[in-house]
Amino acid sequence: MATTRIHRLVLAFPAGLAVVAGALAAQAAGDPVAGKAQYEGTCGGCHSVDANRIGPMHRGVVGRRPGSVAGYDYSPAVRRLGGLWTTARLDQWLQGPQALAPGAKMYLSVADPAKRADIIAYLASVSPPAEPVRGARHQRARTVDAGAKR
């Protein structure tokens, strides 16, 4: 019964569900302390929290527009993303940046969901607390629509 309802929901809103599921997974399990060490080890070859290096700086990334750090030379793929970086969207990005933004300049992926959740919890901890989740979801939907029409 419940399964049928979920099934119908999945058919109707597969992308939306994935976003929500991703957000729940990321928010439920993430440990920012473990995430800091994971971040330094896995992302620290290219990123710093407070400096643009091979990749852009990460302070404030949760809740900010993709491709918006001044002084960093982003790919058009990331600049065109629109919307905001939510924890859910970061989870998608870390599963495969090229799937989310084909042609992006980042190729590293993190296969382990728990590790992604920890890293994202750490990124959230170096970002302003109020994440505008609802607004971001709407913006994201618009972006996806716009992309599909092109």
């Binding site: 896995t42 590293l108 992926s109």
Partner: peptide, 17 residues
């Protein structure tokens, strides 16, 4: 040490791509 750790992981983490 940090940079070498980051570099090692950067290479390993991109092989799948």
């Amino acid at each position: 040490t940090k940079l070498e750790m980051g570099a090692t992981n950067a290479y390993v983490g991109q092989i799948a791509a």
